[in-house]
Nucleic acid binder design. Structure first.
Lengths: 130, 130
DNA sequence: ACTAAATGATACCAATCTGGTATCATTTAA
DNA sequence: TTAAATGATACCAGATTGGTATCATTTAGT
């Protein structure tokens, strides 16, 4: 099970580059030095923009900038944007159907672990990853 | 990202049933009440046996018993047996090739989180999930 | 001795997820 | 007007996962 997939990895590197640059960077400009295929990075940057982590400007000379300071962009934000929310728990009965769900001890334990991971992952910011 | 896949879920339920029974239970006997396809449960039980979590006896009247007390079988053991070891970190450069690897801040952070999850997951035992 | 019940070991298949590719539309600076 | 850039989709190939099928081997019971 991967918490950090390639796409998350790419996203972190790209955002770190944007943070360092201080000015708008295009997807193409980000992809080349990182050795990432341009279309892939574009898709990632689009997801980050949709999630409100970056702001984009279109047209010639456009690109991406951070929507807020690096210290307020967490690894958790990035993971959520690129991969969707964490769901550690694949209940076989899909939650609703399991008559034991309330009392299912495994669910409770796993939910607690998931919560801890979210806390950890939110505590790491882009500023820490500079 | 799922920590608890269906197979892990099945494994936990099956092991809990074995623990409650106190005697050997066959894969068929375990599958039916849990509503799990027999061949799937057999594969899972085989993996658990290979990992030394259960002991199996073959032939007529055979089945599976816990290889050690439920309090000494952790959720981590079960996950490792069914899914392989946790690897949160998908380094794009595969570790060896990344010249920044030592200093890669993301790796360090993620490794720390992974370690915490392992601790948590090892702390939960089958006895807690009875 | 024979048979039925059970695990061990594989091989295979379908669905989903993930990384990567391709296209077209839209916006904007030069 | 044009080139450079993002927005939005649609698509494809490989890996993973859940599920199926098969055959060999072991063992208890008759």
């Amino acid at each position: 099970m991967k918490l950090i997939t390639r796409e998350v990895d790419y996203a972190v590197r790209a955002l770190a580059a944007v943070a360092r640059a201080g000015r708008g960077l295009s997807a193409a400009g980000l992809a080349a030095p990182a050795g990432v295929p341009r279309p892939v990075l574009r898709k990632i940057m689009q997801a980050l923009s949709r999630a409100g982590i970056t702001r984009s400007s279109r047209g010639r000379g456009g690109g991406f900038v951070l929507a807020r300071p690096a210290g307020r962009i967490s690894l958790g934000d990035i993971i959520s944007a690129v991969r969707g929310p964490l769901k550690f728990n694949d209940c076989v009965f899909g939650g609703a159907l399991c008559h034991n769900h309330r009392t299912c001890l495994l669910r409770g334990r796993v939910a607690a672990i998931e919560k801890k991971v979210m806390e950890e992952v939110r505590r790491v910011t882009l500023a820490d990853l500079g």
